[in-house]
Simulated assay, not measured.
Amino acid sequence: MKLSPVSKLLRKPGIPLVQFRRLAMAALPVVLLLALATGCSLFQREIASGISYKIDQEEDVISSNGSGIRNLDKLDSFMKRGSGSQRVVQYTIEGDPIFTELRVDGDRLNLRYDTTEDAFGSGKVDTYACDELVRTEEDHLLKYTLKGCGEDHRDRDLLAVDFNVARQDKFEFVLKYGVNQRNVIDTVNQNVVKDMLNGTTAEISDYTLPQVDRQSIYRKLVLAGYLEEKQLSESCNRKPYESYELTVMINAAERHYAWSECDTGRDGKAMTEVADYIIGLVEAGDRYLQLPAATGGVE
C-alpha cells in the first residue's frame, strides 16, 4: 500500500507498517485536539475580552504602515459626533495588527490599546482615559493626537499621515475623463487634451503642473487611501455617460483605476472626488482657459 506524503515524512525507518498505522491512529485524537485548540484560541479570547479581532473593511480606520490609510473620514466623523466608539487598526512593518478602540464616556475618552496580535509587541491590553483627541494639519502632515492621558501616557499620536510629495522619488499621473474619456491630463508626457464635443480636440503641449498643485493632488490621493485596493465599477445605465481612468506612478510602483459616474459606492465616490479635484485645478489654470470653448454637444 502507498503511503501519503505526510505519512512518508512521519514514518520512521524500522517501524513496521502495521505498527505505524496503530501509532498514527492513536495520535490522531491528540492532533485534532491541538488543531481545535489553535483554531479556537482567537475565538475564546474574543469571547473573554468582548471584542472582535476581525477587521471591518468598511468601519475600521485602517493604517497599513505607509502603504495607505482607509476610512479616515470615519475618525473625523467620530470626533464631530462626540459619542459612540471608533476602532483604529494599525499594521506593523511585519504585518501584524494593533487595535485601538476609542469610546466616549461622558466627558472622557476611554481607550483600549490591544497588542495581543502583534508578534513583536508587548502582547497585552492597556486601558486608559484621555481628555480629548485633537486633529492638526501642518504643511505636509496630518496628525491625530491624544491629549491629557495621565502621567503614564501623557500626550501621544494616535495617527500620523505624511503627504509630502517631495519625499517621493517619482510622482506622475495620467487622468482620462468625460464621455469616451476624450479629455486627458497627462503629467508624464506633459500634455492636456480638451474634448471639443464635435469630434475634434484641442491640446496643450509642454504642460507642467505647478508644484503647489502637484502637492495638493498628492495630499488628496493619500487621504483617499489611493494605495489601498478599490472596489470600482465601470458599468453605467445612462447614455451617454462620463467615465474615468486614472493611472498613478509613485516611485517604482504603478496603480490603475477605472470607473464610471454611475459608481456610487464608497470607493467610487472617493475616486470621483479625487478626479474632479484634479480636473478643477487644471481647468482653472491660465493655459487651459486660453483653449477655445467647446462647440459641439454630447450625444
Rank of each mutant, 00 (worst) to 15 (best):
E254W: 03
K8G: 08
G268C: 07
D131I: 09
E203W: 04
K74H: 10
L75A: 11
Y144A: 02
R81L: 13
D139R: 15
R81T: 05
V125A: 02
D139G: 06
L175S: 00
N198F: 03
E273S: 12
P292G: 02
P97W: 00
T127Q: 09
N189D: 12
A48M: 07
E151A: 11
M271Q: 04
K54P: 08
V248A: 08
L142C: 00
E46Y: 04
T208P: 12
Y241L: 02
T92F: 01
H140G: 06
P29F: 02
T92E: 03
V134Q: 07
A284N: 12
Y277S: 09
A252V: 15
F43K: 15
I47T: 12
K239I: 11
V222D: 07
L289P: 05
I98S: 14
R287S: 14
L158V: 04
K12H: 09
K147M: 10
Y53N: 02
K230T: 06
L291Q: 03
V212S: 14
R287A: 13
E101M: 15
L72H: 00
V274T: 08
L17I: 13
C149H: 03
D157Y: 08
T187V: 00
K124T: 13
P97V: 00
P29E: 05
G84I: 07
R103W: 10
N198R: 01
R87E: 07
Q168T: 13
R112M: 02
T187D: 02
L158C: 01
I250D: 14
